[in-house]
């Protein structure tokens, strides 16, 4: 899980072009949207693309998005669960 979260932080920075953010700036449980990293709705779409490109996972139900993309940890948990069920 720790390795996956570290990879996710690097992937988020690259995918969202967060040039002034370092992986260590993103807390495992820090909210990615609003008061946290301040991501917006376009970033949310980019995170869906990230899951497809890097982890071959499609988000089937868009309503799950807020829970999946709440933080790096929730993303990692979702990826782990999806791969277990695959």
């Amino acid at each position: 899980m720790e390795k996956l979260m570290a990879d996710l932080k690097a992937q988020i920075i690259q995918q969202l072009n967060l040039q002034e953010v370092k992986p260590e700036d993103i807390g495992d449980d820090q909210p990615l949207f609003k008061e946290g990293l301040g991501l917006d709705s376009i970033d949310a779409l980019e995170l869906i693309v990230l899951l497809q490109q890097h982890h071959n996972i499609r988000v089937a139900n868009p309503e799950d998005g807020p829970n999946i993309f709440y933080s790096v940890r929730t993303m990692a948990e979702y990826i782990t669960e999806q791969k277990k069920n695959a």
């Binding site: 072009n17 376009i42 980019e46 693309v49 497809q52 490109q53």
Partner: peptide
């Protein structure tokens, strides 16, 4: 491949 939302806007 996968259309980029960030570029589309």
């Amino acid at each position: 491949d996968i259309a980029s939302p960030a570029l589309f806007v």
